[in-house]
């Protein structure tokens, strides 16, 4: 039990509310929420931030983030964030979006926010599946992966190949910072946290759009235990997606390159 000499080295962040998260046991959404909240707290931006939410499992996430919030319709978060950004030029504005939300229905809004160099940050949660609606195929679903709408496994000749969002976005001149992390291990989680911080720093420095892709799990719809799901990320998602920092603002070079 607590002894006087000991000090707290890890405690819940002020960036999250007291509300218990509704996600399935072991779901990466909770880890990613915490990372964003910790970074905003450490940067002293909790009072100066407006988050914009997705539709997906994280549709109700404004209850958890201790910052102002505007919820968007499915895929439209980058457009909503653009409106907020133009209305409140000095705030930190970020979107939180799943792979269905960003890579399917909302790819136009996301790409054009990047093309405009909109000074917002997007946290892109890639679990290779539609979680909320019960495990359908996403544009990020791997070839051969079985989902409820690809029951025989995703076939390239019918549905093409998984889209590598960070790679695609790194080609857009308006995107100033693009990084791709994961949640499969403590090391990966800490690395992802650094990316998230650099993305917000990029925004505050006025460099342009920033995106952090985070490989995440969906134990429920993958039919795996949370521990196995993390292994599955490591063995299957990581090799299929570009990882690391793909693009850093020219002034701030020095981060590791993929």
């Amino acid at each position: 039990m607590p002894e006087a000499a000991e000090k707290c080295v890890f405690k819940p962040t002020e960036g999250l509310t007291e509300k218990p998260l509704h996600y399935c046991p072991g779901c990466s959404h909770g880890i990613i929420h915490r990372l964003i909240a910790e970074v905003l707290e450490e940067m002293g931006q909790l009072d100066n931030t407006v988050g914009v939410g997705p539709v997906g499992c994280a549709a109700f996430c404004e209850q958890y983030f201790n910052v102002d919030w505007v919820a968007a319709a499915h895929g439209r978060a980058p457009a909503v964030a653009t409106g907020v950004r133009r209305a409140v030029p000095d705030a930190v504005v970020f979107t939180y979006q799943g792979d269905g939300d960003l890579a399917a229905i909302g790819i136009a809004e996301a790409m054009h926010a990047a093309i405009r160099g909109e000074k917002i940050t997007t946290i892109f949660v890639n679990n290779a599946i539609y979680g909320m609606t019960g495990g359908q195929m996403a544009p990020t679903t791997l070839i051969g992966m079985k989902t409820t709408t690809s029951p025989y496994g995703r076939k390239a000749e019918e549905t093409g190949y998984p889209v590598d969002i960070p790679k695609l976005f790194s080609e857009i001149p308006g995107a100033a910072y693009v990084a791709s992390g994961s949640t499969d291990s403590p090391k990966a989680v800490l690395q992802t946290k650094k990316y998230i911080r650099r993305a917000f720093e990029t925004q505050l420095a006025g460099h342009g759009y920033s995106l952090v892709s985070v490989l995440s799990n969906c134990p429920t719809n993958w039919g795996l235990t949370p521990v196995k799901a993390m292994e599955w990320i490591r063995e299957n998602l990581v090799p299929n997606y570009t990882m690391g920092e793909l693009k850093v603002p020219t002034a701030a070079k020095g981060g590791e390159q993929a």
Partner: peptide
């Protein structure tokens, strides 16, 4: 600012964001 959106779908959601932040838009 005038922001030229990529579509009317996007325009209306930009409006939602700006109105959500309390601006006349």
């Amino acid at each position: 600012h005038m922001v030229q959106a990529e579509s009317e779908v996007s325009s209306i959601y930009m409006l939602l964001g700006a109105a959500g932040a309390g601006e006349r838009c």
